[in-house]
Write a protein that binds this DNA or RNA. Structure first.
Lengths: 246, 246
DNA sequence: GCAAAAGTGTTTAGTTTACACCCATGC
DNA sequence: GCATGGGTGTAAACTAAACACTTTTGC
């Protein structure tokens, strides 16, 4: 619904505040993490919250989300995906505010330093997320489900890994997300068969005497095929909590 | 981003108009159809447009979409799914307006009568969609892609069929969406193996002497398993325009 | 009986899974 | 030389795809 004539005005129509909230996921090699801020102002001072902000007159929602993330982490090129808007008229008791959540995937190592003390930001273990203000807990739940869904079909989890990673790290990442375990051999074959991985000469010897090869993501193929399907995940239906008996 | 203290106001923050636009899909047995309205007012009087409306003070986005659809078609329980918001600050030259598109799937037969002349609504063959106002053409494209994606994994296309349908009608529906053809036998097996279909005693004899059994959707199983995965579509990756050579 | 569409069966190819096994290395 | 995780091989089970075949029935 739009108009473009200079003579027409939407004067009779309600206007509302529109904000974005960012559900920022990271992975520390062992656990999924969620980046939260401690509010420095009322209401709900010192309570934990998602990082968010109002949309500005000359920016799109996506630009607002990127701006907010930049303020918080210093990062510019972050993977962001829009989730369905939260628009219950009562969700905000001050003024009508619609919030559009975005989930973000970032390499936790890239922003550890920058995490501005302005926001008292902290990386929580995802499963140990504290109570959040307003409807932010629900936003996190929705984001988790969407991440599980999307990552089962598309190679987005690479966004969470450092530039160099081993197959074991990649597998652990998937195992944690789906709270499951995957066969080492089968997983490696699938991962390699995507052609997205470039084997390095260097090995990681932290976990074994033999050492595991590092891999890098083939960024070109990755961007070219972002929407391509993976079948990374065995028993996808079951892992996504879907009963197949029907 | 929200607040709930009575003392706080968002007075310094921009407020914007928020609207919903509905991309209404139907299927006439032969072609996908798109329900459009001819605007009766300026700007763009008599041009074709999606049906939309501004969000009201006491309704959510979803409620607004349902209201708009009810006005247009008389239908209340319509399948609706939110698409990412269109929020370019320049998309509306009058006032800043963010539009949240919803795609709707409806049984074309259920609303033929009601189609209120208030809106000069018409069912266009999807592939023969005229030029639409503003960014509505793009919304339709996004909705088509999302429908293809979603229908490959979930049984939503039943929403487009009448209460009783034959396997052939179901297959034709999928074939048209994916601009492809599917093996009769394999398709029937997959469709039946979902357990979602209840065979009727009656047959449709329009297309053959032998007659094809009618089926009804098992609504209970359908609602229980809405998020369950289907593997209805052979070569899903290729049909969704995804190159697998990587 | 034959045409035409409905519906079933069957062969083959491909993929997935589970699990066994070999490999390289530091101690 | 042996323990440890890294990496490879393989048989069996399952699934998908192609296509041939049988069924029904109005004319």
């Amino acid at each position: 619904m739009t108009a473009s004539s200079g003579r027409i005005r939407y004067s009779g129509q309600t206007r509302v505040h529109v904000a974005v909230d960012c559900i920022v996921f990271g992975f520390d090699g062992e656990n999924f993490r969620l980046l939260l801020i401690q509010r420095g102002f009322t209401p709900h001072r010192q309570e934990w919250s998602l990082m968010g902000g109002f949309i500005q007159p000359n920016e799109s929602l996506e630009a607002a989300a990127h701006r907010v993330l930049k303020e918080l982490t210093g990062l510019e090129d972050v993977y962001l995906e829009q989730l369905p808007a939260f628009s219950d008229p009562k969700r905000d008791s001050v003024d009508r505010t619609i919030s559009v959540p975005y989930f973000a995937l970032i390499d936790i190592q890239k922003c550890k330093a920058q995490l501005s003390s302005d926001f008292h930001a902290e990386w929580f273990i995802l499963s140990e997320t504290p109570d959040l203000i307003f409807d932010h807990n629900l936003m996190v739940e929705v984001a988790k489900m969407r991440l599980r869904y999307k990552a089962a079909l598309h190679p987005i989890l690479f966004e969470l890994l450092p530039a160099k990673f081993t197959l074991q790290q990649l597998r652990t990442l998937y195992e944690k997300l789906y709270e499951s375990t995957f066969d080492k051999g089968n997983f490696a074959r699938k991962a390699l068969s995507t052609g997205l991985l470039i084997q390095q000469k260097e090995k990681n010897k932290e976990h074994s005497r033999k050492g595991a090869f590092y891999f890098k993501l083939d960024r070109e193929k990755y961007y070219d095929n972002f929407e391509a399907f993976l079948k990374f995940i065995p028993n996808m239906e079951k892992l996504l909590g879907m009963d197949k008996n029907w």
